[in-house]
Simulated assay, not measured.
Amino acid sequence: MQQFFTILGGMGTLATESYVRLLDKRTPIHCDQDYLNYLVVNHATVPDRTTWILDHSQPDPNEALIEDIKQQSLLNPAFFVLICNTAHYSFDKLQAATEIPILNMLQETVNEIKKIKPDAKRVGLLATKGTLAANLYDPYIEKAGYELIKPTPEIADMTEDLIYHDIKEAGHSDGKKYHELVRKMIEEQGVDVVVLGCTELSFAEEMDPETKYPVADSQSIIVDRSLERALKLRQK
C-alpha cells in the first residue's frame, strides 16, 4: 500500500474507533477509492499512561509504543497519529524512535484555539490526572499567550469518573456528566474555552449532543490535521 499513514491507537479502543469514524465521515468521497489509506494499530494492552506517570514503578507504556513505532516504520508510513493525549508525556522519546513524523496532538490543539475562540484569554483544561500532574499542556498553552486554568480537585475527580468508570470500564459515555464538566469549567472557573485533553472526552463529545460551550476537542482537531496531510499525499 502506498500513500498511507499509521494510527497508533488502543488507548483506549473506543476513542480510537471515534477517531476513525470522524476521519471517514469527514473525508470527501464519491466512491470506495476516495477514502484514505491508513493502518490502525489498536494496541489495547499498552499499560495505562496515567498509572505509570503517577508511579514509575508501574508498567511502562513506552516500551510497547516504541515497539509499535519501530515495527510500523518498516512499512514506511507517511506519518503517525498518536491517539492518546497522556501518551504525549513521552513524545520526544517516541519521535526519537523513528524518522517518520508523529503529529503532535497537544500542539495542534492549542494552535486551533485562536480559530475556535479568537478573543480567548483563559483556557481551561479537562484531562486525566496523569496529564494534569505532568503539566503536559502547560508549555503549549502558556507559550501561546493564554492563562491556563486547571480543574479543581472536584472537577478532576468527576473527569476521572467519566473517563475510567463510564468509558474505559463500562464502555459507554454519560452525556450528563460530560456536559456538567464543561459547564463547571466555563461558568464556575471562568474560562473562555475548554481543551478536551483526553480522547475519551472527545468520545463523549461525539456520542452525546455537542456542548453549547466552546471546546478545543483534541481528537477532532487531530482528525482534521490527519485529513489535510493525507489528502496532500495524493497530490504528489
Results as ranks from 00 to 15, higher is better:
Ala44Leu: 02
Pro77Ile: 13
Glu154Thr: 15
Ala87Glu: 08
Val81Gly: 00
Met207Val: 13
Ala120Met: 12
Glu200Gly: 01
Ile7Pro: 01
Leu65His: 02
Asp92Ile: 04
Leu103Phe: 13
Asp192Gly: 09
Gly145Glu: 06
Met207Phe: 10
Gln71Cys: 06
Arg26Cys: 07
Leu201Ala: 08
Pro101Ser: 07
Arg225Glu: 14
His56Thr: 09
Tyr213Met: 02
Ala97Lys: 02
Ile69Met: 07
His30Ile: 04
Phe80Gln: 04
Ser73Trp: 09
Val123Cys: 05
Met11Ile: 07
Glu63Gln: 08
Lys121Arg: 13
Leu22Asn: 11
Asp138His: 13
Ser73Gly: 11
Val41Pro: 00
Asn111Thr: 07
Met11Glu: 08
Glu160Asp: 14
Ala127Pro: 03
Lys184Tyr: 12
Glu147Cys: 05
Ile7Gly: 00
Asp119Ser: 14
Gln219Thr: 13
Ala64Glu: 02
Thr131Met: 07
Asp119Trp: 05
Gln219Phe: 09
Pro151Ile: 00
Ser90Cys: 03
Thr211Asn: 10
Pro151His: 13
Trp52Ala: 00
Ser57Glu: 14
Leu126Trp: 03
Leu36Ala: 02
Thr45Tyr: 00
Glu17Thr: 14
Leu231Met: 14
Leu36Phe: 06
Val223Glu: 02
Lys25Ala: 15
Ala87Thr: 08
Gln189Arg: 13
Met1Pro: 03
Pro28Gln: 07
Glu180Gln: 15
Pro139Ser: 05
Val195Ser: 06
Thr131Cys: 04
Tyr137Asn: 05
Tyr137Asp: 13
Ala64Tyr: 01
Asp92Gln: 15
Lys114Val: 14
Glu180Pro: 01
Gly10Ile: 01
Glu200Asp: 03
Glu154Trp: 12
Glu112Pro: 00
Arg26Gln: 15
Asp217Ala: 01
Arg225Met: 08
Ile221Gly: 06
Thr86Asn: 02
Gln3Lys: 15
Val193Ile: 09
Thr6Ser: 15
Leu136Asn: 06
Gln95His: 13
Val20Asn: 04
Leu23Val: 02
Ala64Arg: 00
Lys177Ser: 12
Leu227Asp: 11
Asp166Ile: 00
Leu125Met: 09
Ile186Trp: 00
Ala78His: 15
Pro47Tyr: 01
Lys176Ala: 12
Leu126Thr: 02
Leu103Gly: 00
Pro118Arg: 04
Asn85Ala: 03
Leu39Glu: 13
Asp192Phe: 14
Tyr164Gln: 03
Thr86Pro: 03
Ile69Thr: 11
Gly171Met: 03
Phe203Val: 08
Ala44Pro: 00
Leu227Gln: 08
Lys25Tyr: 08
Ala133Cys: 02
Pro101Glu: 10
Phe79His: 10
Gln219Trp: 06
Lys121Tyr: 08
Ile149Gln: 12
Leu148Gly: 10
Lys93Met: 06
Leu196Ala: 05
Pro59Ser: 01
Pro118Cys: 09
Glu154Val: 11
Gly12Phe: 09
Ile7Asn: 01
Met185Tyr: 13
Leu196Arg: 04
Asp174Ile: 04
Thr98Gly: 10
Leu94Met: 10
Thr51Lys: 05
Thr86Glu: 04
Tyr140Pro: 07
Ser218Tyr: 10
Phe4Ile: 04
Val110Leu: 01
Pro139Ile: 11
Thr50Asp: 08
